[in-house]
Computed example of a mutant assay.
Amino acid sequence: MTDEKPPMSQTPLSWMPVVVMVVIAIVDVVVGPGVGLLPLVAVGPAFAGLVGGWRRTAVIGVLALLLCVGLGLYNGLFAERRGYGAMASVAGVTGVGIAAAVMRSRREAELASMRSIAEVAQRVLLRPVPLNAGAFQVAVSYTSVVAEARIGGDLYEVVASPHGVRVIVGDVQGKGLAAVETAAVVLGAFREAAYDERDLAGVGERVERSVARELEGERFVTAVLAEIDVGRDLTLLNYGHPPPVLVRCDGSVDFPEPPSYALPLGLTAHGTEGPDPFGVRFEPGEQLLLYTDGVTEARDEDGRFYPLGERTHLLNEPDTHRALDALREDLVRHVGGPPGDDAAMLLLRHHRHGDGNPPPSGG
Rank of each mutant, 00 (worst) to 15 (best):
S161T: 00
S161Y: 02
S161V: 00
S161R: 00
S161D: 00
P162Y: 11
P162T: 10
P162M: 10
P162C: 09
P162Q: 09
H163T: 13
H163A: 12
H163K: 15
H163Y: 12
G164F: 12
G164L: 08
G164Y: 10
G164S: 07
G164E: 12
G164D: 10
V165W: 06
R166Q: 01
R166N: 03
V167Y: 09
V167T: 10
I168K: 09
I168R: 10
I168W: 12
I168H: 10
V169A: 11
V169S: 11
V169P: 13
V169Q: 13
V169H: 10
G170N: 11
G170E: 11
D171C: 09
V172Y: 07
V172M: 06
Q173F: 14
Q173V: 15
Q173H: 15
Q173T: 14
Q173A: 14
Q173K: 14
Q173M: 12
G174M: 02
G174L: 02
G174N: 06
G174P: 05
G174S: 06
K175A: 07
K175T: 03
K175P: 06
K175G: 03
G176P: 03
G176S: 04
G176D: 04
G176Q: 03
G176Y: 02
G176C: 04
L177N: 06
L177G: 04
L177F: 08
A178L: 07
A179P: 02
A179C: 03
A179K: 01
A179M: 01
V180T: 14
V180M: 09
V180E: 09
V180F: 08
V180K: 09
E181F: 12
E181L: 13
E181Q: 13
T182E: 11
T182C: 11
A183Y: 00
A183P: 06
A184R: 00
A184H: 03
A184S: 07
A184K: 02
V185Y: 04
V185R: 01
V185M: 05
V185Q: 04
V185H: 01
V186F: 07
V186D: 02
V186E: 06
L187N: 14
L187V: 13
L187K: 12
G188M: 08
G188H: 05
G188C: 07
G188V: 05
A189H: 05
A189P: 02
A189S: 10
A189W: 06
F190T: 05
F190C: 09
F190Y: 04
F190S: 07
F190D: 04
F190A: 03
R191L: 01
R191M: 04
R191Y: 01
E192L: 12
A193R: 05
A193P: 07
A194D: 12
A194W: 06
A194I: 05
A194M: 05
Y195P: 15
D196E: 15
D196I: 15
D196A: 15
